[in-house]
C-alpha cells in the first residue's frame, strides 16, 4: 500500500517519540496543579457554626445539624466547587491539596460546637459561638437572642393576640 506509507511512518515515529504516561502511582503520585480544588478542611477554632456554608453547598455535603449544633462534612458527596470557601464569613474553610478520597475509611469531618439552649423551651437552636459573634458585631447584649426562633414566633404570636384582644376590649368599652 504505497499510498499509506507516509502516514504509517508518522505513526511509527510518533510511537517512538511518545511520552511515558504511566507512573508507579501510589509511590510516585502526580503533582496536583496549583489551583487544585481538593478536599476541604474546616478550622474548628475559626468556625462559629453559622451554617452559611451548608446553605450554599449545592451537593448538600456540608450539613449543619441545628439540633446538635454541629457541622458535618462527608467528603464522598463533595463536588469540590468551593462555594463553601467563598461563602464562609470567617474564612474558616480551606481547600487542601488532597485529592485521594478513595480510601478505606472515608473521612468525615465533624465540627462540634457548644450548643446554645433556648431559655424558654430548652431546645438547642444554635451554637453559643454564633450568638457571641452576633453580640460582638452589634457591640451590645441582645437578650432576645437567647430564645429559639420557634419560641420567638410563639412570643410574637402571643403579643399580636394580646394586642388584638386589648383592641377588641377597648372597642367594646366605647
Amino acid at each position: 500500500m504505497p499510498g499509506s506509507l507516509a502516514p504509517r511512518l508518522t505513526a511509527y515515529r510518533e510511537a517512538a517519540e511518545g511520552r511515558a504516561t504511566i507512573r508507579q502511582y501510589p509511590y510516585q503520585p502526580l503533582p496536583p496543579p496549583p489551583r487544585l480544588r481538593g478536599v476541604i478542611q474546616i478550622d474548628p477554632e475559626k468556625c462559629i457554626g453559622c451554617g452559611a456554608c451548608a446553605t450554599a453547598c449545592p451537593a448538600k455535603t456540608l450539613v449543619f445539624d441545628r439540633e446538635r449544633a454541629r457541622l458535618v462534612y462527608s467528603v464522598t458527596r463533595c463536588i469540590f466547587c468551593l462555594l463553601c470557601v467563598e461563602t464562609c464569613p470567617k474564612g474558616a474553610i480551606t481547600s487542601l491539596r488532597e485529592y485521594e478520597i478513595l480510601v478505606e475509611k472515608t473521612p468525615t469531618q465533624v465540627v462540634k460546637h457548644e450548643p446554645a439552649r433556648c431559655i424558654k423551651c430548652g431546645r438547642v437552636y444554635a451554637s453559643k459561638k454564633l450568638l457571641e459573634e452576633v453580640e460582638k458585631r452589634v457591640k451590645r447584649k441582645l437578650p432576645h437572642l437567647k430564645t429559639c426562633p420557634l419560641c420567638k414566633l410563639e412570643q410574637a404570636a402571643m403579643i399580636t393576640a394580646m394586642r388584638v384582644l386589648r383592641a377588641r376590649q377597648a372597642y367594646r368599652k366605647r
Partner: peptide, 29 residues
C-alpha cells in the same frame, strides 16, 4: 487504535491547560 492513542496523547495538553486555569481537567466549576 494507534491513531486513537496518539491523538489522545496530543489532547492531553489541552486538558493540562484547563487544569492550570481551573484546577481541574474537565469539571471547571
Amino acid at each position: 487504535d494507534t491513531g486513537f492513542m496518539h491523538i489522545m496523547n496530543a489532547r492531553e495538553e489541552v486538558m493540562d491547560a484547563a487544569e492550570i486555569i481551573t484546577g481541574n481537567r474537565k469539571t471547571y466549576s
